[in-house]
Simulated assay, not measured.
Amino acid sequence: MQINHIDLGNRPFIRSHNLYRLIAAGKIKLGGNKKLKIYGTLKCGSGRRMKLENRVFFKNEEEALANGYRPCGNCMPADYKLCKKNNGTI
């Protein structure tokens, strides 16, 4: 299940609180860019710069791949190279 960042609350503080709660519960482990269909780690610098309305979250890599996302070349270079080599599949 893809979680949209914008849907976590109507104010920044509420969104942050809900996001940290979901991360602590293990329900979110990866972030992604809805517009570009890229996913990566939550600590990726590329992910931190994206627009809020494009930010989505996933529980695991299988979920991201099932939604048609590819690995980030910045924070997941090995997976990205493998995906690129295999024409979009890992």
Results as ranks from 00 to 15, higher is better:
L8S: 04
N87K: 03
D79S: 04
R70M: 10
A64D: 06
G45M: 10
E62H: 10
K84L: 00
G88W: 06
K84C: 03
G45A: 05
H5M: 10
G73P: 04
G88Y: 04
C72W: 09
A78F: 08
Y69N: 09
R21I: 08
K35G: 06
M50N: 12
A78H: 05
K85T: 00
G45C: 02
E61W: 07
A66Q: 11
K37P: 04
P12Q: 01
P12V: 01
I90F: 06
A24T: 10
I23S: 11
N10C: 01
H17Q: 15
I28W: 12
K85C: 01
N33Y: 12
G68D: 03
A78Q: 03
N67F: 14
L65Y: 14
M1V: 07
K84D: 00
L22E: 15
N10P: 03
G73L: 01
N67Q: 14
L19A: 04
N4Q: 14
G40Y: 04
E63S: 07
E61K: 15
I90V: 05
I28L: 13
G68R: 14
A66D: 11
M76R: 15
G45H: 07
R48M: 09
T41C: 13
G88D: 10
R11Y: 11
T89W: 06
T41I: 09
C75T: 02
K37G: 09
A25G: 08
Q2G: 01
F13D: 03
K85F: 06
G9Y: 02
I23G: 08
I38R: 14
G40P: 07
N18M: 05
H17Y: 14
G73A: 01
E61G: 07
K27W: 01
S16K: 15
I38S: 09
G26A: 11
N54A: 05
I23D: 01
L82Q: 10
Y20G: 09
A64R: 12
I23L: 05
G32S: 10
R55I: 14
L19M: 08
K43E: 02
L30G: 13
K43Q: 08
K85I: 00
P12T: 00
G32T: 05
K35L: 10
K59P: 09
N60Y: 06
I14Y: 08
L8A: 03
D79V: 02
L8R: 07
T89E: 09
R70I: 09
I14M: 08
G31H: 14
N33G: 13
C72H: 09
N54L: 08
A66R: 12
G45I: 11
C44F: 05
R21P: 12
G31Q: 15
C83R: 02
F58A: 04
K85V: 00
R49C: 00
R70Q: 11
N74E: 11
R11H: 12
F13N: 08
I6R: 13
M76N: 12
N86C: 01
E63W: 03
K81Y: 02
H17V: 12
E62G: 11
P77N: 02
F57V: 06
R48D: 07
M76C: 08
A64S: 10
L8V: 08
I38A: 11
Y69H: 09
P71L: 06
K84Y: 00
C72V: 04
R49S: 01
H5T: 02
P77V: 01
F57N: 05
